[in-house]
Nucleic acid binder design. Structure first.
Length: 117
DNA sequence: GCTTTGACGTATG
DNA sequence: TCATACGCCAAAG
């Protein structure tokens, strides 16, 4: 069932994530029209074609933690890239309610300033 | 073709 | 918050 077009949509969905924002594997899968296929997103990222550059560091697990093992080179690189974009990473985790794409709705409700902190 | 392996996710205790 | 279990499914061997 999985076709080349599926991967294209996965890569496209990732490319759309705004700077300073993050999304989960599950969200990407959903946006790509592939519900419950978060693992496929992981596979797609692992095998990103040469020449295609993506904001892969903006993809996290559903609870906001970095998928790589803590301390691994990839982990550090992802954390660094996120911090560089202004995303707060604490203990290998990101506060999805604040940095997730879904947070856009809150802006309309609360304005520029977040309700807390 | 069957088994194992994941850059995952949800449920449950 | 941590752990364990199970669902998921394309690739790899």
């Amino acid at each position: 069932m999985t076709q080349p077009a599926d991967y294209a949509r996965i890569y496209a969905a990732i490319a759309v994530i705004p700077r300073g924002r993050v999304a989960s594997y599950g969200e990407i899968a959903l946006r790509a029209g592939l519900p419950r296929r978060a693992r496929l997103v992981g596979y797609a990222l692992r095998h990103t074609p040469d020449g295609l550059t993506l904001p892969w560091h903006r993809v996290l697990c559903s609870d906001g933690h970095i998928a790589f093992p803590v301390g691994s080179v990839s982990f550090e690189e992802q954390r660094q890239r996120l911090v560089t974009e202004g995303v707060i990473v604490r203990n290998g985790r990101v506060a999805l309610p604040r940095f997730g794409m879904h947070h856009d709705l809150d802006r309309e409700l609360w304005g520029a300033a977040p309700p807390c902190e």
